[in-house]
């Protein structure tokens, strides 16, 4: 396809949204801009296969709902993440299953490597399992804020717009979530590869 005619680089998101009322095909530019990041965000939560479908669905929903987009509330990017997050919520079980799978992922000790290394990997795998378990235990709202921060790289302001919650709530949810993760990881965290472990 077809980035449509007058589109790609020069038109900003808001202009595209406004013009897409008359020129629906312009909306395709937003797909080219944001499919990849939206897919990565959804894949981090639901895995790549479901993300193929859900990320595509995000743009279909966005296209249908574009008359309701209000630039006064926020940008196109957080709006798209908001739609994706709602769709992710419909796949709650898949997210739970995915996080559960991380907790039982077997440790690959393929090449009879150095014993220290093997030990480090086993430890890392355990830490990974604990982290996944803790993410699974977070409330939906905490998990949304955590992953919009860690994976989607959205600011607090953008997350407030994405989820339609007050700015302050973003901060409090995020610090609660991170507090729980730190506790789960303990002081020792081979995942991070820091010197404190």
């Amino acid at each position: 396809m077809a980035a449509p005619p007058d589109a790609p680089t020069e038109l900003d998101d808001i202009t595209i949204m406004a013009r897409s009322e008359q020129r629906p095909d312009l909306f395709a530019v937003l797909y080219e801009r944001y499919f990849d990041p939206i897919h990565r965000y959804v894949a981090a939560r639901l895995g790549t296969h479901i993300a193929d479908d859900v990320a595509a669905e995000t743009f279909l929903v966005a296209f249908r709902k574009r008359p309701g987009f209000d630039p006064a509330i926020g940008g196109v990017r957080p709006w798209l993440y908001g739609i994706a997050t709602k769709l992710v919520a419909q796949h709650h079980r898949s997210e739970t299953r995915r996080l559960a799978a991380f907790q039982r992922t077997p440790v690959h000790v393929a090449d009879g490597g150095h014993e220290d290394r093997v030990t480090a990997r086993v430890t890392a795998a355990h830490a990974q399992g604990r982290l996944a378990a803790e993410i699974a235990r977070l409330s939906q709202g905490e998990r949304d804020v955590l992953l919009l921060t860690a994976i989607a790289d959205l600011s607090h302001q953008e997350i407030a717009r994405t989820l339609g919650i007050p700015y302050g709530t973003v901060g409090s949810r995020l610090s609660r979530a991170r507090g729980k993760l730190r506790t789960a990881l303990g002081g020792v965290n081979p995942l991070i590869g820091g010197s404190d472990g």
Partner: peptide, 9 residues
């Protein structure tokens, strides 16, 4: 960073 490493695809 740990969350990102764990979940990124």
């Amino acid at each position: 960073t740990a969350v990102r490493r764990l979940l990124s695809e």
